[in-house]
């Protein structure tokens, strides 16, 4: 379970102070898939780096599986938007996926199994000895997902992972994330700026305000668990939900600092 309470982040450079995150409180239950969506520049990435322990918050707490986060926590894996820079170009696909497992001191035999299973799960069996830059953008992001999955995290953080791939690849990857989440029973926090993507993927959608950021609103996506690109997106309920999210995001843009900051 991921608990974020009263999280606040202020960037200081010299005498200037920029409050990126004002007061964020939310929880993600174990095994839940929650999407965070917000207007561009709303501090999504700052929030994710605080949760991942890569950035020290100015106030508030992040707890993962009951333990307070101070530095990258065990049991957490992150998928970055910039797959091309997150994968190591000097290593083959297999070595990229395997390296974090080596750092985790997993035995050679077990590593081989995990790497094979992970690459198989993302549909990349047979590309083990290729270098990431020999693959298409969508395939590279699959490698990054495989690397995260092989790590066997309890929580998976995804920072706008599909922002840089084309629309068709994106649809495939969305279905892949849902399939992996259902199969592995992992907690997923998925950040996106794409409202449709958030509604399509999530069990819940948290809407963030503009910076300084608070949680603007929250909806439960009461669509059936079995989703597919064609029928789910044509579902009238899907349209209703996305309209609601869209309205909230528009409202958030007009009211920086958040509508419920004072409530």
């Amino acid at each position: 379970m991921l608990e974020v309470s009263s999280l606040n982040k202020v960037y200081r450079s010299g005498a200037r102070e920029v409050e990126a995150l004002r007061d964020l409180t939310f929880t993600v239950d174990s095994g839940e898939l929650v999407c965070l969506v917000g207007p561009s520049g709303c501090g999504k990435t700052t929030l994710l780096r605080c949760i991942a322990g890569l950035l020290e918050p100015s106030g508030g707490k992040v707890r993962l599986d009951g333990r307070e986060v101070s530095g990258p926590p065990p049991g957490l894996a992150m998928v970055f938007q910039e797959y091309g820079r997150s994968l190591f170009p000097w290593m083959s696909v297999r070595d990229n996926v395997e390296l974090p497992l080596k750092q985790k001191k997993i035995t050679r035999h077990r590593r081989a199994t995990l790497v094979e299973q992970a690459l198989d799960a993302v549909g990349l069996a047979g590309t083990e000895s290729a270098y990431p830059w020999q693959l298409s953008g969508g395939m590279q992001q699959r490698v990054a997902i495989a690397r995260a999955v092989a790590y066997e995290p309890s929580t998976l953080l995804m920072d706008e992972p599909f922002a840089a791939v084309d629309a068709q690849t994106r649809a495939d990857l969305e279905d892949l994330v849902r399939a992996l989440w259902q199969r592995l029973e992992v907690t997923v926090l998925f950040i996106t700026h794409d409202i449709d993507e958030a509604v399509y993927l999530g069990q819940r959608v948290l809407m963030l305000s503009s910076s300084p950021t608070v949680v603007q609103d929250e909806i439960t996506v009461d669509l059936p668990a079995a989703r597919d690109q064609l029928h789910t997106r044509a579902d009238p309920r899907f349209t209703e939900l996305r309209t609601h999210v869209y309205e909230q995001i528009q409202a958030a843009k007009l009211q920086p600092g958040g509508a419920n900051a004072s409530s």
Partner: peptide, 21 residues
Amino acid sequence: DPIADETARSFRFGPWARVRH
């Protein structure tokens, strides 16, 4: 690359592993 370094940190690479890899 800061992203490559953050990737390594998020997977809990130690200082030596970050230099090496």
